[in-house]
């Protein structure tokens, strides 16, 4: 057993400071284990949100040594243990207590996105037919566990507080899943451009780099949506084509 120091952000929602905890760590431990150990042995009031401890519920999002990560999927042997491990709540959302943040803004954003609107059923029994090749692309987006790490790292939200004008990478992925769905007939391009702020994304790929589900957020969701917005609003040839063909 080795000793390690964890520098954890403590707060009651306003203000706050780092507090150092020394604790024993052993092989195979993840950051969430260490936080639980500290909670059990030294700080019973330490607030931390978690649920599955398997990287599937998306509850334990935090910033470990400055990078947005899931606490339950960050093994201690990936971190330099000769110096304190800092654990902070996500920066892009209001703090509630210690490591717990209020992510409800995300649920409000989701409500603003136009719902799935399938075409008329293909068969008399009210069912549809789809080709696997057509749903391959959107299946990647459905892996999302709504951990909001991508929202947290995105500088448009994190640094520039554009929460009112930009829906963030998570909801661009969600919009892409609907917009590219072979059965869907809804048009979300106007919203993307005018209300959901897709133009704010400057393709830093930070969201893709932190996604624990390895969703290729920037290249497979955001850029293809940007291109669809270009078709609709910026490309004169494509506008002319639509004018003449009515498509």
């Amino acid at each position: 057993m080795a000793q390690a120091t964890f520098r954890i952000w403590r707060s009651n929602g306003t203000g706050g400071a780092f507090q150092d905890f020394k604790t024993e760590v052993s092989e195979g431990m993840v950051v969430l284990d260490a936080v639980h150990k500290i909670q059990a042995e030294q700080a019973g009031d330490l607030a931390v949100r978690w649920n599955c401890k398997a990287g599937k519920c998306g509850s334990c999002s935090a910033e470990i040594n400055g990078m947005p990560r899931l606490m339950c999927m960050t093994r201690l042997n990936e971190l330099p243990m000769d110096e304190p491990v800092t654990v902070e709540p996500m920066h892009a959302f209001p703090g509630i207590k210690d490591l717990v943040t209020d992510v409800s803004w995300n649920y409000e954003v989701k409500k603003k996105i136009k719902k799935f609107k399938p075409r008329k059923p293909d068969a008399a029994d009210g069912t549809w037919r789809m080709q696997q090749a057509d749903v391959d692309r959107v299946q990647e987006f459905r892996k999302c566990i709504e951990c909001f790490l991508c929202q947290d790292v995105c500088h448009v939200l994190r640094e520039h507080d554009k929460h009112d004008e930009f829906i963030g990478p998570r909801y661009l992925v969600y919009t892409a899943a609907l917009e590219m769905h072979p059965l869907d007939t809804e048009d979300r391009l106007k919203d993307l451009k005018f209300d959901h702020g897709i133009g704010y994304c400057n393709i830093t790929t930070c969201c893709r780099q932190v996604c624990p589900e390895n969703i290729t957020i920037t290249e497979n969701a955001i850029i293809p949506l940007k291109e669809r917005v270009v078709d609709q609003y910026y490309d004169p040839l494509s506008m002319l084509f639509r004018m003449f063909t009515g498509k």
Binding site: H155, G197, Y200, C201, N202, T204
Partner: peptide, 29 residues
């Protein structure tokens, strides 16, 4: 674009690193 916004314009300098400016327009205007 993504690369030089970071390297030449520090927007952001790297993921989760503080930026030199508060104002931000992105590719929106």
């Amino acid at each position: 674009r993504g690369a030089y916004y970071k390297s030449h314009w520090s927007d952001p300098p790297a993921c989760a690193v503080g930026e030199p400016r508060n104002k931000y327009l992105g590719e929106n205007s």
